[in-house]
């Protein structure tokens, strides 16, 4: 039987199981030394990458399409078809507002790290403070998103209005739901800790929640860049813009 050198080396060490690496951990030893729940979370996050990847791809395909259609196809007489109309992204998106709420969400990753660190040290009081702070910052982000959505509705951008609205609300909405789940999770953890259910040995449980939270933050960095920072083309405000817009469409054909 062919055996590689690597295997022969590892065969001797195969019987010794590593611990999950945290002092006082009560979890059963595993073949990799990684706690099973943590490994599950890593693979779950891998799966989430494909989920957000598909949504982001959809958004990137459609981010300029409503504007381009409005510019190029307006005034098709007698077709019986109206053409996609605004509000378009440049009319509704507020970079500064969202930059602040993105900052809030990013800062919550910092408090999450402190929460994980304090439970590792066995400092449950500090853990409560930082976990609640993280959940609170997440809730502030969600409130920000709620007001942003409301503002957009008032300006006439609904999920049906045009394909920008459809892809914008879907992408940021799915992210918002993930933040919501995270807030609930962290709130539950702090409730359990108030009832005395969290001790140093729950380090891994908290760390797994932390992994999820950081992932959601990282996704928002990507979304903030692609949705808010990357420039959009303008849609047609009125009939005068047609010719100019048509030129822009030609220049941008690879994206169309």
């Amino acid at each position: 039987m062919a055996t590689t050198a690597l295997e022969v080396q590892r065969a001797g060490g195969g019987t010794t199981h590593g611990d999950s690496g945290h002092g006082g951990s009560s979890h059963p030893p595993t073949s990799t030394g990684i706690d099973s729940k943590k490994l599950l979370m890593w693979w779950f996050l891998g799966s989430e990458c494909v989920l957000f990847g598909s949504l982001i791809a959809t958004f990137m395909i459609y981010r300029n399409r409503a504007q381009d259609l409005s510019v190029n196809l307006q005034g098709i007489e007698g077709s019986g078809l109206a053409v996609s109309s605004g509000p378009f992204p440049n009319q509704v998106l507020d970079q500064l507002y969202t930059a602040v709420s993105a900052g809030v969400l990013l800062f919550s990753s910092f408090t999450m790290v402190l929460a994980v660190a304090s439970v590792g040290r066995g400092n449950i009081k500090a853990f409560r403070v930082w976990t609640l702070a993280t959940a609170m910052l997440g809730a502030i982000f969600l409130a920000g998103q709620y007001f942003e959505y409301t503002e957009f509705f008032h300006e006439g951008l609904s999920i049906q209005q045009n394909i920008f609205g459809a892809s914008f609300f879907t992408l940021t909405g799915v992210h918002g739901m993930h933040v919501f789940v995270g807030v609930i999770w962290l709130t539950m953890l702090s409730i359990v800790s108030f009832r005395g259910g969290i001790s140093k040995k729950d380090h891994t449980n908290v760390e797994v929640a932390g992994l999820y939270w950081h992932f959601i933050d990282i996704v928002w960095i990507v979304l903030f860049t692609l949705v808010y920072l990357l420039p959009y083309r303008d849609g047609a405000e009125s009939a005068e813009e047609h010719t100019e817009g048509a030129m822009r469409l030609v220049q941008s054909l690879p994206f169309f």
Binding site: D68, L81, V83, S84, I159, Q160, A166, T170
Partner: peptide, 26 residues
């Protein structure tokens, strides 16, 4: 979403505000 909420990810035209509209869905 297309079926429940009237978005248009997969159809090029949809009724928007009661008007059949070219939306660019693909």
């Amino acid at each position: 979403l297309d079926r429940f909420l009237g978005t248009h990810f997969y159809i090029p035209s949809q009724y928007v505000n009661g008007e059949l509209t070219l939306t660019g869905g693909d």
